[in-house]
Measured scan of single mutants.
Amino acid sequence: NKFNKELQWATWEILNLPNLNEEQVKAFIDSLRDDPSQSANLLAEAKKLNDAQA
């Protein structure tokens, strides 16, 4: 389904953001699992944090 694909994509993207530490990655992945419908928003937040920590 749509959420499953978005969840998989967001998870992959977050795992590959180079500037997030392990705790941050875990927190984003946990949030994705808690509410897959928020995957686009969570991915945007993760990318923003990744850029800020570059």
Rank of each mutant, 00 (worst) to 15 (best):
N1S: 02
N1K: 04
N1L: 01
N1W: 00
N1E: 15
K2T: 05
F3S: 15
F3Y: 05
N4G: 13
N4V: 13
N4P: 15
N4I: 15
K5N: 11
K5R: 03
K5S: 12
E6G: 03
E6K: 03
L7M: 05
L7D: 05
Q8K: 15
Q8D: 04
W9N: 11
W9F: 11
W9T: 06
A10E: 02
A10H: 05
T11F: 14
T11P: 01
W12N: 14
W12Q: 14
W12P: 02
W12L: 07
E13R: 14
E13W: 09
E13Y: 12
L15W: 04
N16V: 04
N16T: 07
N16Y: 04
N16A: 11
N16Q: 10
L17M: 14
L17H: 03
P18W: 05
P18K: 09
P18S: 06
P18G: 06
P18D: 06
N19F: 08
N19Y: 14
N21S: 05
E22G: 14
E22H: 13
E23S: 12
E23R: 07
E23Q: 11
Q24H: 03
Q24Y: 02
Q24G: 00
Q24S: 02
Q24L: 03
V25W: 02
V25E: 02
V25A: 13
K26P: 00
K26V: 12
K26L: 06
F28P: 00
F28D: 00
I29G: 01
I29E: 02
I29T: 04
I29W: 03
D30K: 12
D30A: 15
D30E: 12
D30R: 11
S31V: 06
S31M: 13
S31Y: 12
L32V: 04
L32A: 04
L32T: 01
R33G: 08
R33L: 15
R33M: 15
D34A: 13
D35R: 08
P36H: 04
P36R: 02
P36I: 13
S37F: 09
S37T: 14
S37Y: 06
Q38G: 07
Q38V: 05
Q38N: 12
Q38L: 09
Q38H: 05
S39Y: 15
S39Q: 04
S39D: 02
S39H: 15
S39I: 15
S39G: 05
S39V: 14
A40F: 11
A40R: 14
A40M: 13
N41R: 13
N41Y: 11
N41H: 12
L42T: 11
A44G: 07
A44T: 11
A44Q: 14
A44M: 14
E45H: 08
E45M: 14
A46Q: 00
A46F: 02
K47W: 08
K48A: 13
L49M: 09
L49H: 03
N50E: 01
D51K: 07
D51S: 08
D51Q: 11
D51Y: 10
A52M: 13
A52K: 14
A52W: 08
Q53H: 06
Q53N: 12
Q53K: 04
Q53E: 05
A54F: 10
A54R: 08
